[in-house]
């Protein structure tokens, strides 16, 4: 039996989640529920659940506060949120799952199926730790991103990423310790996440960290020499964007 708890200040969420779980997942049992942070902490500590459905905004605090206040993080976390854009950003960086309100039964079911698979992998606490690190440290230098492969889960400092390259629907991360990590997500998703951290997509298959540019060769459409000695082509439509961004990066 898989133990789940629901923490959300709206009764509607309890009703809908309860109903879908009961109908679609016989081996999951909702052992307790809470409508605020204080009660939420109590039920997690008491039941040590496998899955936690957690709201972001609650009257006495946020779901993030709740995570900070508990030591036990060995559960599969699924956020339930309506719109909070900043929250979503942090959640995506930690590769934590989330469901948007109003709840779509198909998305919800897929998330829970994925959660059941991942319960056994025993690495959820890593994601939550990274998530907490990201929301507590506002300084950009300590920002981290979770990269999940089928076998491993990597926590990478954003400042250690030299560049990313796409290969079909995969993305290869090149790190400054010469590691390469292959992730089954598109480059587009990562460029949307990383663009605010001095990353720029200069080519259809290349996303680079401006911090690691060594030299920019202007001839033709351009070629960027990175500090790890790699050469990255610049798409001719992105040349001026790169020059502008580099200028801004050097003289902020």
């Amino acid at each position: 039996m898989i133990k789940a708890v629901v923490i959300d200040d709206e009764q509607k969420t309890h009703n809908i989640v309860g109903e879908i779980i009961e109908k679609e997942f016989q081996d999951i049992k909702i052992v307790a529920s809470a409508k605020n942070v204080t009660k939420g902490i109590q039920i997690i500590q008491k039941h040590l659940p496998d899955i936690v459905f957690l709201d972001v905004q609650m009257p006495d605090g946020t779901g993030f506060d709740l995570l900070k206040k508990i030591n036990y993080h060995n559960f599969k976390l699924i956020f339930i949120t309506a719109h909070e854009e900043n929250a979503l950003q942090a959640i995506k960086f930690s590769a934590i799952d989330f469901i948007l309100k109003p709840i779509n039964i198909i998305d919800f079911t897929n998330s829970v199926i994925e959660a059941i698979k991942e319960i056994k992998q025993d690495n959820e606490h890593i994601k939550i730790k990274t998530f907490l690190n990201n929301i507590e440290n506002s300084s950009e230098k300590s920002r981290k991103i979770v990269l999940k492969t089928t076998e491993n889960i990597y926590i990478v400092n954003i400042k250690d990423i030299i560049r990313c390259e796409s290969e079909n629907n995969y993305t290869i991360f090149f790190l400054n310790d010469n590691r390469k990590i292959l992730i089954s997500k598109t480059l587009k998703e990562y460029s949307e996440l990383l663009e605010r951290y001095n990353f720029i997509r200069i080519h259809r298959s290349h996303l680079i960290n401006l911090n690691y540019i060594e030299r920019f060769e202007k001839k033709d459409s351009g070629l960027v020499y990175m500090k790890d000695k790699s050469k990255v082509p610049v798409s001719f439509r992105k040349k001026s964007l790169l020059l502008d961004s580099f200028e801004k990066f050097l003289n902020p």
Partner: peptide, 16 residues
């Protein structure tokens, strides 16, 4: 219920 729920969440997705 199922149809209303599906319809509503699709509507929300489109709006987003």
């Amino acid at each position: 219920t199922e149809k209303s729920s599906l319809y509503l969440s699709n509507f929300a997705k489109l709006m987003r």
